[in-house]
Design a protein around this nucleic acid. Structure first.
Length: 587
RNA sequence: GCGCCUGUAGCUCAGUGGAUAGAGCAUCCGCCUCCUAAGCGGAGGGUCGCAGGUUCAACUCCUGCCAGGCGCACCA
């Protein structure tokens, strides 16, 4: 209905411009049409005349008069009124309230679809957690957000590809390798000290055990040989100490490479593959999938990094200083210049990331959306600057920053070093509740995850409340069949005018707003809008259900109510599917 | 110090520049012969952090301040 009103107003506006009644240069970016709160204001209202008043240099009520006079006729509109400072109120026919039910029952996907995307090609990169350990609850939020956003964009006319960038190169991968290596030696009976900057988690030990099981003695070296002559790993705090700790770890990495030779890569690949497999398992369980897993290593191997560097040089954005190669990002919005190639000749993570984003654009994507943890916000300016330097299209790059997650009940960090993994959380709260809870908050707000509420199976838990509405409709239909009846859709659609109670009007209006909610959620990249909507719809439905019996003897009214119920079920199933939450038939 | 995010009911949070700022929880008062009580109805509860500004209109936009979180590497 909203789209219809907006259409009428657009026509009226164009007519007035063509007649010279309004200045020609005027442009309306988006017509605001809203539901009225007060029934005496009609069903819908627009502030278009108010918005035009200033640029057109005319009184808002005069413009409103002209717009109303120029409105094309519509079967749905009974009358219009001008109210207050210049609102245009629309009164619609009773029959128009049922339009959405007809459309939902005909094809809910068509009903829900609004083409905000116009086929725009979007590359959505999310999660991209380093394969150096299990996913934690923060990654889970990014996973839920990214996957829901992908579904949302796909449902609103975007051509979206989902991608996971695997950080399988660089120092972190080396730290993982030596961490596993030391635990591997320990599994062979050596007494080892784990460096303070290495990975301490229990999963490293499991990985080492698996390594031993597969390769036996192949990588073994006596621990004293490994450590001989290495700088010490000092205790304590402070920058100087920290640097010594890192130096110790770096020396250990070099020594391990040297001792293992070509086997180093075998060991490292084993460790990375093990961790990545664990991540994939968790994501599968979490109903998150990707179109492509993109390896950082392949960027170096394929020459993509060299290509990006050459292009940056060509465009004059690169210089050398202190033995390193720098990108002049400071002239493109970044606070300082950034190193691409270190003085030791090894490219930085940033250089690989620049090449990756160039590759995304080269593959023909119009828009790049990266989903990052909030702690990476300082990184945005330099990546955008690099894209700008490469292509002049820095505005195509968008980052959705996801704020941190804390767990309620003090369950986080209960025992030091024993952090809660995403797999643990899913295990505890279930897939549906976990996804839904992640998605109920705006991404830029820190999330306090209430585990006890997520576990609870009462109406206090919004996900159960919504799923229950869906199951309830299914239950009613089962009861109907048990009683030897069937839902007569055609008869129901004929009899929709029986749906005239306050509660039924509430449900009808809510259903009608669904396409607009989806469009807004997609435009704002805000899946939480949809989560809130579904809760409201479920609430409207439950309120109606509790006051009105559906399975009554009067066939016309019964079928009309069934039509409304099924429409609710269809929209809930559609919305939950976008959020990646199941819509069960019974509970 | 600089940058990003946040500040709305006791708590957790919604809120396209638009008409009287909302929801859930919590609190209080009611409600089960009935398609699932895994539920429903009602009540109280607000200086939208503070101060200016922009305009027909500001919780919403701008500026400054206050408070909290995060970040400021030749790590990733």
């Amino acid at each position: 209905m909203k789209a219809l009103i907006a259409d009428l107003l657009t026509h009226a506006f164009n007519t007035l411009q063509a007649d010279g009644r309004l200045p020609a240069g005027l442009a309306i970016t988006e017509i605001q049409v809203e539901r009225t709160r007060d029934p005496s204001h009609g069903d819908w209202a627009s502030n278009l005349a108010l918005a035009l008043a200033k640029p057109a240099q005319q009184k808002p009520r005069d413009i409103a008069q002209a717009l109303v006079a120029a409105l094309p006729p519509s079967a749905a509109v009974i009358k219009t009124e001008i109210a207050g400072p210049g609102f245009i109120n629309f009164f619609l026919t009773p029959e128009s309230r049922f339009e959405s039910v007809r459309r939902i029952l005909a094809d809910v996907n068509a009903f829900a679809h609004t083409d905000v995307g116009h086929g725009e090609k979007v590359l959505l990169e999310f999660v991209s957690a380093n394969p150096t350990g299990p996913m934690h609850v923060g990654h889970g939020r990014g996973a839920a957000y990214g996957s829901a956003l992908g579904n949302l964009l796909a449902a609103t006319g975007f051509d979206v590809q989902r991608e996971y960038y695997i950080n399988d190169a660089g120092r972190q991968a080396d730290v993982l390798a030596v961490s596993v290596f030391l635990r591997y030696l320990e599994a062979h009976g050596e007494r080892v000290a784990i460096p303070s900057r290495a990975y301490p988690g229990e999963y490293v030990r499991h990985c080492a055990d698996a390594l031993k099981a597969k390769y036996g003695q192949q990588f073994f070296h006596p621990y004293p040989d490994v450590m001989q002559g290495l700088p010490a790993d000092p205790d304590g705090e402070g920058d100087a100490i920290k640097m010594q700790k890192e130096a110790h770890l770096d020396a250990l990495i070099s020594r391990t490479r040297q001792l293992l030779g070509e086997d180093y890569r075998v060991l490292q690949d084993f460790a990375l593959d093990t961790q990545l497999a664990d991540i994939r398992r968790t994501l599968d369980a979490f109903n998150v999938s990707f179109d492509r897993w993109y390896s950082e290593r392949t960027l170096a191997d394929s020459g993509a990094i060299d290509k990006a560097l050459a292009r940056l040089r060509e465009r004059g954005h690169v210089y050398e200083q202190d033995g390193a190669v720098w990108l002049r990002t400071s002239t493109l919005g970044d606070e300082k210049d950034r190193v691409l190639i270190r003085d030791n000749g090894i490219h930085t993570y940033f250089a690989a990331d620049v090449a990756y984003h160039l590759d995304k654009l080269d593959r023909g994507f119009d828009t790049l959306i990266d989903v990052w943890g909030a702690d990476h916000h300082g990184y945005i300016a330099r990546v955008r600057a690099a894209i700008e330097a490469l292509t002049g299209q820095g505005d195509r790059f968008h980052v959705a920053l996801i704020q941190f997650v804390t767990l309620s009940s003090g369950r986080m960090g209960k025992r030091s070093g024993n952090f809660v993994t995403l797999a643990d959380l899913i295990d505890e709260a279930g897939n549906d509740a976990t996804r839904f809870f992640y998605l109920t908050r705006s991404p830029e707000v820190p999330l306090e995850f209430d585990i006890d509420l997520a576990r609870s199976q009462t109406k206090d838990n919004p996900v159960y409340y919504i799923q229950y509405a869906h199951a309830r409709v299914c239950s009613v239909l089962r009861k109907l069949a048990d009683d030897g009846h069937a839902f007569d859709e055609a008869a129901g659609l004929q009899a929709l005018t029986h749906l005239d109670s306050q509660e039924e009007r509430g449900v009808l209006e809510r259903l009608d707003s669904y396409p607009d909610i989806l469009a807004r959620a997609a435009r704002d990249r805000a899946p939480h809008t949809l989560a809130h909507y579904l809760r409201d719809l479920a609430s409207d439905f439950h309120v109606w259900y509790n006051g009105h019996k559906i399975l009554i003897d009067d066939a016309a009214v019964r079928n009309a109510r069934l039509a409304l119920s099924v429409a609710v079920r269809e929209v809930i199933a559609h919305g939950l599917d976008i959020l990646g939450v199941n819509a069960p038939d019974s509970m």
